[in-house]
Amino acid sequence: MTDKDFHFLVESAGMAPSSDNTQPWTFSPGPDFIDVYMVRDRLLAIDVLDMYSFISIGAAIENMILAAGIRGLECRPDFSPADALDQKNDSSQSLIPVARLHFTPADSVSAYPAVTFSERHTDRRKFSTRVLPDSMIKELSGAAAGSGTAVHWIRDIDTRKQLVGIDSVFSSILLSHPPLFDGLFNTVKFSRRKLLSDGWGMDIKSLDLPFPAAIALRIFGSRSLGRIIARWGVGPLVAKGLSERLSFCGALCLVTAPGRSRRAFLEAGRTMQSVWLKATELGLSVHPYGVITQYLHMAELEPWRFTREAVATIKDAKPHFSGLFGCPETRHPVMILRLGYGTGRQRSRLTVRFPPEKIMTAVP
């Protein structure tokens, strides 16, 4: 593996999506391998088992695997470092080892279009409600790359509306509980200058918030605005408006994992990314949704973050949620993707990313 190979692989990995654009990864080269680390300083404030950070890194690894083929290399991921974390997680580590990727010469060079990495983006706008055809669902499902993972689909409008109802309830819990609200927006950057300076986090303009909501966030900040919403009891009304986007799509895809191990989350990230990239190739818009899946895990593993009433509400909703997707309750839901045909309006603003040199690390 040459220096040019390593640079291309890291550049490709860095284009992967990450929760709140935290980009919680860094990469260290070896003679024929790359070690993948999670950066503790860029983990989400509220993320049970660091699930979304591992999913994000899994997406970056999937990009790297595909990019390796373009360079005439074959990549074999080894997730045993992540397995070790399930046994003992050293909270003192600033860089947490999660995987080693081994590279060998491939028999041929992949024709995968590298431009797909940069063309993939999050689109939070409303999509056409035209249902995606069976042939497209089959192609998207066939792209799922993660071992042990599965994808489940909702397409008909009535079922989508039922999911809107569940998401509205969960989002209302979020908006009515200030600590959760503050955790949601603690990575938001209110100026382009601050975003460019830090190199990570969410540009408030990329959220496509209604103009009054964006102004209120700028004026009050997330903590104060969360308390205002909770005090005036308008959380359910705001939540309903935000959740309605779930009905504006051609299909909803649920990614599930066989368990809650770090390896399972990494594989789920690979599946999410491979489906997303295929959707990009097919000209579809994609928007990831994580509130429902996050809260289902959190209510079980970290119930102290909610009120008792909220915990009961979330747990009671799980069978209905699983039933909508035709998903066995033994599976662990980790991410919802909203997919559809774009409406021709301007797409969501692209996020700022670290340059490759900033996510390369020399680790002894």
Rank of each mutant, 00 (worst) to 15 (best):
G269F: 12
R270D: 04
R270N: 05
Q273K: 03
Q273G: 05
S274Q: 12
S274I: 10
V275G: 04
W276E: 10
W276M: 10
L277C: 07
L277F: 10
K278R: 15
T280I: 07
E281V: 03
E281N: 06
G283D: 11
S285M: 07
V286G: 00
H287Q: 14
H287R: 13
V291I: 14
I292D: 01
Q294K: 04
Q294Y: 01
Q294V: 00
L296C: 11
L296G: 03
L296R: 02
H297G: 10
M298E: 15
M298R: 12
E300H: 10
L301P: 03
L301R: 11
P303R: 13
P303Y: 09
W304M: 13
A310N: 11
A312N: 13
A312L: 11
A312V: 07
T313K: 14
I314Y: 01
I314R: 01
D316H: 14
A317T: 08
K318L: 13
K318I: 06
P319F: 06
P319N: 10
H320G: 01
H320W: 13
H320T: 15
S322A: 15
G323A: 08
G323P: 06
L324E: 05
G326F: 09
G326P: 11
G326S: 09
C327V: 12
P328E: 12
E329G: 07
R331L: 04
R331F: 01
H332L: 08
P333V: 02
V334L: 07
I336K: 00
L337M: 11
L337K: 08
L337H: 04
R338V: 07
R338K: 14
L339I: 12
